[in-house]
């Protein structure tokens, strides 16, 4: 895989992650698996290390332009850290194929609601 292709993947990841405040991993992980032949587990880990600095830079631009409800951010993040551990435990116990389908449907419904306004 050429260096220029990596640069393009990196740019696309940063762009989507900045534009949508999420989704960098959605682009980066499959790209690393497909084009760079990195195994799934390492692709996830490497993606985190790539997206971290990109998110920090995006946060800088977002914060510069608007106010944030900080107490809400704290509560949501606290829930998120606990949830992350619970999710990791559940992952080993729950069969995921149907779970991904259900989440996919939920995401589509939420997406339609956001598109229709």
């Amino acid at each position: 895989m050429g260096k220029s292709a990596k640069l393009i993947i990196g740019f696309a990841t940063g762009f989507a992650n900045g534009l949508f405040g999420s989704g960098g991993g959605t682009i980066l992980v499959p790209s690393m698996e497909k084009f760079m032949k990195i195994e799934t587990h390492k692709a996830h880990a490497t993606a985190l290390a790539v997206i971290f600095p990109l998110s920090v830079l995006s946060i800088f631009f977002y914060l510069r332009s608007g106010q944030l409800p900080w107490s809400e951010v704290l509560w949501i993040s606290a829930g998120g850290v606990i949830g992350g551990f619970l999710g990791a435990k559940l992952l080993n116990k729950v069969k995921t194929p149907w779970l991904h389908k259900i989440f996919g449907l939920f995401m589509a419904v939420a997406a339609m609601k956001m598109i229709m306004g």
């Binding site: 990196g10 405040g21 600095p53």
Partner: peptide
Amino acid sequence: QLSPLILLGLAGAAAGSLIAVN
């Protein structure tokens, strides 16, 4: 793999964020 991906990733992040906030 980190540096090639992060290099233009930062440029992309700046561009995407600036478009989003505006």
